[in-house]
């Protein structure tokens, strides 16, 4: 069971993500965005950062990176694919998740701990969590305001006190099948009580376990 942690030029949470996945017992490797063969992997994480400088629109250029064909294939095959923060934006631009992320309601970068509530455990990211469970996870984003005009997203995690104006308080959403998830806060940053919270572990563990299920 091996996770591909995709690195676009400008991604910056890749090393943190690999560190946490490995600490939880998963195999994880960095994969450069020009890679065209991910057949050795059983799941993928698109980590946070500023892929291609976030120029034009966040995620707009990244969706054309060669590696994205493989991410689309993995998603279609039912393997777990999770986009964190900037990775969430890329998944939206690539059409793997509905909607888009726009500038925060207050037009400022937000870097702080937020509380989210588990509202749907049917996704690969929330599979190990309890419905109604509250998690403290850091949020670090400028374009973190989720919108889905004329639709209602499948929210799997909801902000307890919406910090950025997201529709339906969405902190994380999933596709219908539940194997593709975008999450705006950073679960990998909530993996060590010394740094303030280890509540993200249950999410990362759910993701790792789902990889085994989807493979079986």
């Amino acid at each position: 069971m091996k996770v591909a942690v995709v690195v676009f030029p400008g991604t910056n949470c890749e090393r943190d993500t690999v560190h946490v996945l490995r600490a939880l017992g998963a195999e994880a490797d960095l994969v450069w965005h020009r890679e065209t063969d991910l057949s050795a992997f059983d799941g993928a994480v698109l980590p946070g950062g500023f892929a291609h400088g976030d120029y034009l629109r966040t995620g707009a250029i990244a969706r054309f990176s060669p590696v994205m064909d493989e991410i689309v294939r993995m998603a279609a095959a039912g393997m777990p694919v999770v986009g964190i923060c900037n990775g969430f934006q890329v998944l939206c631009e690539a059409g793997l998740l509905p909607g888009a992320l726009i500038a925060n309601r207050d037009l400022a970068f937000i870097c702080k701990m937020v509380d989210v509530e588990v509202v749907d455990t049917g996704s690969v990211l929330t599979a190990a969590a309890m419905p109604g469970q509250r998690l403290r996870i850091p949020l670090n984003s400028y374009e973190g305001n989720y919108v889905l005009p004329d639709g209602s997203p499948r929210v799997v995690l909801r902000y307890v006190d919406d910090p950025n104006g997201s529709q339906d308080g969405a902190a994380a959403i999933a596709n219908d099948r539940g194997n593709v998830v975008g999450i705006m806060p950073h679960p990998e940053r909530a993996s060590d009580a010394l740094l303030g919270s280890s509540d993200g572990v249950v999410l990362m563990e759910g993701f790792i376990a789902s990889m085994e299920v989807s493979h079986a």
Binding site: R15, C111, P138, R189, L194, L195
Partner: peptide, 16 residues
């Protein structure tokens, strides 16, 4: 000021 800065990256900020 510092809530606009990413001060958590690299998972090493023990005293923020």
């Amino acid at each position: 000021v510092y809530n606009q800065y990413d001060h958590m990256l690299f998972l090493n900020t023990v005293i923020p």
